[in-house]
Design a protein around this nucleic acid. Structure first.
Lengths: 224, 224
DNA sequence: CGCATAGTTCGTTCCTCATCGAAGCATCCT
DNA sequence: AGGATGCTTCGATGAGGAACGAACTATGCG
């Protein structure tokens, strides 16, 4: 057996779909609670708790407790760099084998990512909101700008919420290799799009299909 | 389920001890045969064959066939970078937990790595052979220098061999974070050290324990 | 103080994967 | 042409780990 660092042990921590989803979710830089990570991973709370214990024992996460909330984060930039490197290889070897069809094209344009919009339209929307300074962004966090409340009120989106999740959060979008908007605001925007029937979710898929009228309305509202 | 590259699948390929050992062995940059990788991994040929199929399917390896020999290599610098990143995290989180004892100290000084010497003494030996230009080294390969044949003949080591493995190969030594010498020459040197009884293998360990006389002889022969 | 919420632990079940011996295939040497 | 070598495939076995419901613990609010 070869000497040196036990790369199998570290890699196997990442090599489970549930844990990989948690780590990817934390790549946005914000700490997330155990319940939020359970949702991101698509598993039950006990299962998520078990996975988080393993990631903690393996040294990949940090933990900050606040009352009964447990906020988890990546252990540092070296762990983030490793996730980046693995993601880069996955992206490089992946598409060589998968032939994108119409469905994958639809997924790239717009899709649901847990509870918010992802895809090219979502990335463009975030860029535009930042450009207009409705949202403010540095390299770590996204915050509401001064005009955010009135801007979203005019659209019919209430940005105030009792939920304890962050209002704004960057979510890495590997289909276009940039970030889109997650958080309670991201979720509220997706709710609005679906409620106004600008777009609908495709059956058995996460693709979000805009109608021609809906596409126009979305662009008028978010990309003008 | 989160969209984007499937990092769990790639990470799980690395996350098995046998496959991790194979990938680490290939980090030296030279292609290795299926049999050699089976030895590096410490598993039987059928098991190694199964693992190599998985790594090929996953896009982490390349294959060059030559007659009945199958030579495997890493698929490219991006894969090597990923292994480096994982190794860095493993090294960073690992030592924080393991308290090295006397046995680990012996392992750091000198040990067997598959069929050649590893550890501080092995790294120092390679440095000295390169400094004296007995061996020539660039950033990719290690080659025999013009005086290599006579140099090793004087020591009683025949560098010519019918084995198809490379004569010289760099092997990453994570105990000192530099390379030592693998390949048929590395194996021959270890054979010499053991045959002359300069050192012996510790029972149930890969540590190589030099006697005081043997240490002196090794230094005279390889570090002068 | 009682109820609600966030999260952990326990026990059980089921599935996946690593392992190897045997057999077989392809290549090479005598 | 036959035997040897390198490697793959097949079939069987056993172990480990992910999953969740139930129960429990800690924290917070009315």
């Amino acid at each position: 057996m070869r000497e040196g660092p036990d790369i199998a042990r570290i890699a196997s921590l990442v090599g489970d779909p549930a844990r990989a989803n948690m780590l990817s979710a934390l790549m946005g830089g914000t700490a997330l609670t155990a319940s939020e990570l359970a949702l991101e991973a698509g598993v039950s709370l006990p299962t998520a708790s078990s996975h988080l214990s393993k990631l903690m024992e393996g040294g990949l996460l940090t933990l900050a407790s606040q009352g009964r909330h447990r906020y988890y984060g990546l252990a540092g930039p070296q762990v983030a760099g490793m996730i980046e490197a693995i993601t880069g290889v996955a992206a490089a070897v992946g598409p060589q084998r998968v032939r994108p069809g119409p469905r994958d094209a639809a997924m790239r344009v717009a899709r649901v990512c847990y509870d918010h919009l992802a895809g090219e339209r979502a990335v463009a929307m975030l860029d535009r909101l930042v450009a207009r300074q409705v949202l403010l962004r540095d390299d770590k966090v996204i915050q509401l700008g001064p005009s955010a409340a009135s801007h979203f009120a005019a659209i019919g989106i209430d940005i105030h919420t009792k939920a304890r999740r962050p209002v704004c959060r960057a979510c890495l979008d590997w289909s276009v290799r940039r970030s889109h908007l997650a958080g309670t605001l991201g979720a509220a925007i997706l709710d609005k799009i679906l409620a106004e029937k600008w777009a609908r979710r495709e059956k058995d898929s996460r693709a979000v299909i805009f109608s021609p009228v809906g596409k126009q309305a979305f662009e008028t509202t978010f990309l003008a």
